[in-house]
Write a protein that binds this DNA or RNA. Structure first.
Lengths: 328, 328
DNA sequence: GTGAAAGCGCTAACAT
DNA sequence: ATGTTAGCGCTTTCAC
């Protein structure tokens, strides 16, 4: 494995000049540049990043925090963000927290010790302030977690509004009472959604009890299980605002299995507008996000910070869309 | 950010001793060890990995190659493998190739230049020999890509057999002619599957034309599109072996939309036994994999190689399972 | 059992 | 425009 010293020897210049060529510095003679480039090609030299990193105290690596990868929303988001970062010349390390605060804490430690140059949060079990106190002035940006943008750049969809729209839609169709389910009711995101759910009820002059809120409903199987439980009671709910399309699909399957008709007996709506919505009978209504645009917004902001700029934290909330299909 | 030198100063020993404590060397006096540990706690010191890496020429980082993350099979596999690696004390960097040979080549370069200590392949657009010639004696292990295990440790399901079972099952139900679809027919995996598909036909004394093979069918939407195209012809296929459950779900939705009954008019089977199988009407038959076991097998092997052992490449092929549901 | 010193590959301030 | 040199944080001989 050749080093810049080898390149220097072969091309007959000093290693500083090699470094200058490598880093596209000005003030290098055309002649030196050519010789160095030839030597690089000849020895098929590639920079050892660890040397650079040790010297520069930078990694060109960004971390992304997701609760779990085996999830249609987070895998899609991680896929898009990874590509976006790569295109911007950064490597991406994906961290799964499995909704655990301990696992999330370790990631902040990694950031503080500069194992990554910045962190993208897509979910958190902490509040914005708690995170800020941990990470100090390290770079953190937030993607579609419902922080207020007080500490970090935050871009995403207005989740309170999204849930209001979904809930209002079901209530408007005459579905009541409703139930609501989310993956982690302790997170700010789920709290926002829950507020939107309640606001829609108030808007229609209806009461909604805390008992219609279900926590830790994440996967298709969770949706099936919740449906099996709630649909078999004497008075099953008339409508469901599900935390994701996968959960919604599971609930729909349970309704079919129990013999309830969708949307006549029970109406269902999910989040994300994932293509799974097209594969159920009836097809699933959903709230849509423009993830690609969100990713670009976020990366733009992140790039600025990585270049040392330090503007006030920004909050971008995009409008969600209602995609009405067969299930409502 | 404190360094071992700070620890050395505070604890009153030399930095070599600090290093020895850090690395759990023997021959350190109990007294020194205690003082160093106190200083570490006091300054909340954490090792700077880049220093270690530069010195040791190792990263404690493993790369994983997936075609794309936004895919139920690969995101699940990536999730499991990432957790398995983390538990073994390694970081994981996920690379998406988007089925491009160029993107994949870059990853091999990264391996050669030791940006990662090893690579886990879950898909490749190259042959085993081509990869070997690129990566030389760097560590590569293969997860469920159908290599022959001549060059690399390979663990996964016998895909030829899996496809034989799926195809045989449909033919046995009287479904003929069939069509077959895969994500990337140039890959060894899809070739194996295609061979299993043909072998099942031969087993039943039936012919199958190359025209029943469809390439680059990856997502739910691809499945819908393929279904719309093939189901509207005068003589639609009687059965489909789909490359993944998502594609199968898309095909099923298209069949329903076109007015074909499943399984009466057309029978469908997918791969992976993903829970989406439970959410369609009818539910989807599928070929099941034991991914968690595969991940553990693989990690065991990988750990050995990372410890410098260099046994002959191993080939583990687990038996696939047939999960019969409503669609066949 | 412990410390001094060399060096992993690289960049940048300083000198020329 | 180019070379010399120090040093990023760490591990590991080699002395003692």
């Amino acid at each position: 494995m050749p080093t810049i010293l080898d390149i220097a020897r072969v091309s007959g210049v000093s290693k500083s000049t090699v470094s200058r060529v490598l880093n596209h510095h000005p003030h290098v003679s055309e002649d030196s540049r050519r010789k160095v480039e030839e030597a690089i090609k000849e020895l098929s030299y590639v920079r050892n990043l660890r040397g650079v990193q040790l010297r520069l105290q930078r990694n060109h690596t960004i971390g992304i925090v997701v609760p779990l990868l085996d999830h249609p929303y987070f895998s899609r988001l991680a896929g898009i963000l990874t590509k976006t970062c790569r295109d911007a010349g950064y490597k991406m390390v994906i961290h799964q927290t499995f909704f655990s605060q301990d696992a999330e804490s370790e990631i902040y430690d990694a950031l503080i010790h500069k194992e990554v140059d910045a962190l993208i949060l897509t979910h958190s079990a902490f509040s914005e302030e708690e995170i800020k106190s941990r990470v100090q002035d390290q770079i953190v940006v937030v993607c579609n977690e419902q922080f207020e943008g007080a500490q970090f750049d935050t871009v995403g969809v207005d989740e309170e509004e999204a849930t209001f729209i979904a809930t209002d839609h079901l209530l408007h169709q005459g579905a009541f009472p409703l139930i609501f389910c989310g993956d982690d009711m302790d997170s700010p995101l789920q709290q926002k959604r829950w507020e939107g759910f309640k606001r829609a009820h108030a808007h229609h002059g209806l009461e909604c009890a805390d008992t219609c809120c279900h926590n830790k409903v994440i996967t298709i199987e969770d949706g099936v299980a919740l449906g099996e439980e709630r649909f078999r009671t004497a008075s099953p709910p008339k409508g469901i605002v599900a935390g994701s399309d996968f959960v919604a699909a599971g609930l729909l399957a349970a309704a079919n299995a129990v013999g309830l008709s969708v949307p006549e007996d029970v109406k269902i709506i999910g989040f994300d507008d994932h293509p799974i919505c097209l594969t159920t009978s009836p097809t699933l209504s959903s709230i849509s996000y423009a993830l690609d645009e969100i990713a670009l917004d976020l990366m733009g902001r992140l790039t600025q910070r990585l270049q040392g700029k330090n503007p006030e934290p920004l909050l971008i909330k995009r409008k969600p869309g209602l995609v009405r299909r067969g299930s409502s």
